[in-house]
């Protein structure tokens, strides 16, 4: 019985433990460093000098950093809602209907996923100048070009996730619903949408993460007054990586983790009830 190791027995092999350790170190060491050095009492941020919360205070008092942070959150929120709706509708259309050029639409919708970000950024920049997208609007309308760009590259990810979810859907559930007296709309609301929900949440989460940390495309499409957090951090780092950047980044990481936890909780309400 103990001749061949079971799946969990492999964890007792030294080389496998070493491997796991290496993976963890390479994945998380940089993040740990970032967080730890955000508490470093030093301007240069190379050698550990002592613990301080100073830089969190400074980051908070840095108006332009806070503005960029707010911009990022607003952009991410609006872009997530829009790309989830558009992506889910496209996924439903592709899943449900057969129409001329369906495969072309499907392939075309996946383009933003495969096109290099830099090309997408340039393309969007050219597009905005070409159509004369209004600039210099009041906040938050001046974020519209960034939001537009984020929706453009994020919604295909939602489509892919929702589409994959719907592949497992038993069409007779919809038929059963109609057979029992439900209208088209009632059927969608009561039967199709609940089934889609995990896909929607996963897709929205993906879109939000993509939007929050996007640098390249935002760099091309944001005006000077509409910096997002990643772009602002980049400009700050150019003058040296101070613990202030670390502190701001740590806050972003915490926000992201919180959002993820919320999303995961929303995804499995049944388990909490039981």
């Amino acid at each position: 019985m103990a001749d061949r190791p079971g799946p969990l027995d492999y964890l007792r092999r030294w080389w496998l433990r070493g491997w796991i350790l290496a993976v963890v170190v390479f994945l998380y060491a940089p993040i740990v460093c970032l967080v730890v050095f955000s508490f470093n009492d030093s301007r240069r941020n190379i050698v550990w000098q002592g613990f301080t919360l100073d830089y969190y205070g400074r980051a908070l008092r840095n108006a332009s950093l806070i503005e960029a942070f707010t911009n990022s959150l607003v952009v991410a929120l609006v872009a997530t809602v829009l790309s989830t709706i558009i992506g889910a509708l496209l996924a439903l259309a592709l899943w449900r209907f057969r129409f001329v050029g369906r495969s072309a639409v499907e392939a075309g919708s996946a383009l933003p996923i495969v096109i290099p970000e830099i090309c997408m950024g340039v393309a969007l920049l050219v597009f905005f100048t070409r159509v004369g997208w209004p600039t210099g609007l009041v906040w938050p309308l001046n974020l519209s070009s960034v939001i537009f760009s984020h929706v453009a590259f994020a919604f295909p990810f939602v489509t892919v996730v929702v589409r994959a979810r719907m592949e497992g859907f038993d069409r007779s559930l919809e038929e059963a619903s109609k057979d029992l007296g439900a209208s088209e709309w009632q059927t969608f609301w009561n039967v199709t949408l609940p089934y889609m929900k995990p896909g929607l949440i996963a897709g929205a989460l993906l879109a939000m993460t993509l939007s929050l940390d996007d640098f390249v495309i935002t760099f091309f499409t944001s005006g000077p007054e509409t910096l997002t957090f990643p772009v602002k951090v980049y400009s700050m780092v150019r003058f040296g990586a101070t613990p202030e950047v670390n502190a701001a980044s740590t806050v972003l990481i915490v926000v992201t983790i919180l959002l993820t936890i919320i999303a995961i909780r929303l995804q499995s309400p049944a388990k909490q009830e039981g």
């Binding site: 038993d170 007779s172 559930l173 038929e175 059963a176 619903s177 057979d179 029992l180 007296g181 439900a182 209208s183 009632q186 009561n190 039967v191 609940p194 089934y195």
Partner: peptide, 26 residues
């Protein structure tokens, strides 16, 4: 009303909710 080959019981509803569904929507 129809009993489907795959039964098509709504997976996200309890037994009682499944049976009540047709009455509720109508």
């Amino acid at each position: 009303n129809m009993v489907f080959q795959s039964y098509a019981v709504f997976p996200h509803m309890t037994v009682a909710e499944n049976v009540a569904y047709g009455l509720k929507v109508s």
